[in-house]
Design a protein around this nucleic acid. Structure first.
Lengths: 329, 329
DNA sequence: GTGAAAGCGCTAACAA
DNA sequence: TTGTTAGCGCTTTCAC
């Protein structure tokens, strides 16, 4: 628990010289450097980030806002952010907002209070007005979810195109009664994926039926189960389902199994996100893969560049349709 | 971006008085308080944690070490930690170690560098020697996993008893060939759960067969699938499986399904952890429920108390066997 | 009830 | 190449 003063004293140099050694400043003579390093070692000295951060007016902490840590979709993105942050001498503060404005406020305050140098928001339910206000003064990046007309830089995929391809895949398999399990359309990605769904149907002259479109409040499994239960009560059941998330798709699959129907023979399913569990279901789930790790790295790099004061461009990454058992009759 | 000086100037008081207002110090007259609050408001002032932290020699950040953020077992624990931290004006830094010593070192350094006031370790693969060394100088708590002979306070459940009950449940259903899918016994919980497994078998005079005990390297789904594949290659197959985690159990279930065997008719399964997925499998999974949220709260409270300089006692929390379809013939 | 001033641990401009 | 010194923004002791 020594401080820089004690090291300087022990080494018989000034604190400035110790600081130079700590920061690998080239202008220190080898002899002096050795003396300092010896003193550091003997005193078991570790520089305090508190002092350094205050002096440098930075915390080297990045905020990452996610709605829920339990949602597996975010894991890989976070890995990407984390790796990129660490290799740039940053650390990340993972913030679970529960899409709760009060929680969100706590985290926004951390930025205002200089406890974090910037933020990556992945919360679709974030208070966009507040986020935009914050973005005027502080570096903010949006990842995956974003504000269409807004000024905050973002990295994402082409959700409409991805959904279009997923539904087209079902159509090519001969399906015409394709249900859409969507989440509340207050989310941009929900609107975009619905748009892709409709585009595919229109292209093949398949009518868009409101009875086949179900909106859930949230993305958890249970909502998918409930949605599927409703869809199975239709007089004419769908022969295929496109769910806008794997969690919803897995919930739907659960309900289909419960009703003793078979996937894909009776009903085919496509999910979205390629979470790890999507390969553990029976049958395995056809899904849209997002380059999550890369997305995380990109977001982190954008943020770090923004902190440096650079101008940031939006990024659209590629996606991929992963065909597995749930659509392989 | 105003600082305390500017507020003081604007309010026509000293910085000391502004500080008193910020910290709700009672000795400020209402009139002065109002002046200061007005100035704060007009300048849009937010106190900098950088300065405050340096002055107070604290970061009010707690480190939470987990092996992998993707493991759903940790989600609820983290929620508990988070809520408790926030209500005590702390924030948490979630650190994914990947059970990688290098990564671990980075985080240990954050504590030494005063970037965090203490840590909760949940990593079973943590370098115990280093953790113990750190615990000499800094507040550390272990959660779920711990060091038997060590000096670091911990909160956990009685793993042996929980495993014993799980296996006894299978025995009561008439099973005698009960396989154990365990993880590498370098982990304490693995040794303890195996011990509970053996205790139950012994109590009912069922022989402990090495061929029915399989050790995986890690806890991911795929390892459970692989373990089950091996167990199904036995001449005489097991009629029941106890897996030491839900992820392994779900992987095993997947393999059983693939082989067109039925759960629980052909093989019954019990998992451990009650992760949210365990209710989405077909059939739903019988599992041991740990009070994860409470465990997180307890760990955080222990750590905060430890930071305050109090002496900490170990805590053993209750568990519960949740019987679902995978053991209901 | 309020202000002056010291100092938390560090970095960097300037001087030597 | 190294030292002196100011100062990052805040809290707190000691005077008044």
């Amino acid at each position: 628990m020594a401080n820089i003063q004690q090291v300087a004293k022990k080494a018989g140099v000034s604190v400035a010289t110790v600081s130079r050694v700590l920061n690998n400043n080239a202008t220190v003579s080898p002899a002096t450097r050795l003396k300092v390093e010896t003193a550091i070692h003997e005193l078991n000295y570790e520089p305090s980030m508190l002092g350094r951060n205050l002096r440098n007016s930075e915390s080297r902490l990045l905020l990452v806002l996610i709605p829920s840590i339990a949602n597996p979709f975010y894991s890989e993105i976070i890995n990407g952010i984390q790796d990129t942050a660490i290799s740039n001498s940053y650390h990340i503060l993972l913030c679970e907002t529960d899409s709760n404005p009060q929680r969100e406020n706590i985290y926004f305050n951390m930025i205002k209070n200089k406890l974090a140098d910037g933020a990556i928001s992945m919360d679709p339910a974030v208070n966009m007005q507040k986020l935009n206000e914050l973005a005027v003064y502080y570096p903010i990046i949006q990842c995956s979810e974003y504000d269409e007309g807004g000024v905050i830089p973002y990295v994402t995929i082409d959700n409409e195109l991805a959904a279009y391809r997923a539904v087209k895949h079902l159509i090519k398999l001969g399906h015409e009664r394709i249900a859409l399990i969507n989440v509340d359309e207050k989310f941009l990605f929900a609107r975009q994926r619905r748009s892709g769904y409709e585009k595919a149907l229109k292209e093949f002259n398949i009518p868009i039926l409101e009875e086949l479109i179900y909106h859930t409040e949230q993305l958890e499994f249970e909502y998918g189960t409930h949605a599927m239960r409703k869809l199975l009560q239709l007089e004419e059941k769908p022969t295929a389902v496109f769910a806008v998330s794997d969690t919803l798709a897995i919930g739907a699959l659960k309900e289909i199994n419960t009703c003793e129907l078979r996937v894909p023979e009776d009903i085919a399913i496509v999910g979205f996100d390629k979470i790890s569990f999507s390969n553990m279901t029976n049958p395995t789930l056809t899904t849209v893969s997002q380059p999550m790790y890369k997305m995380g790295c990109t977001a982190a790099n954008m943020l770090i560049n923004s902190i440096k004061g650079n101008k940031i461009e939006n990024v659209i990454l590629d996606h991929e349709l992963v065909i597995r058992e749930s659509t392989m009759g």
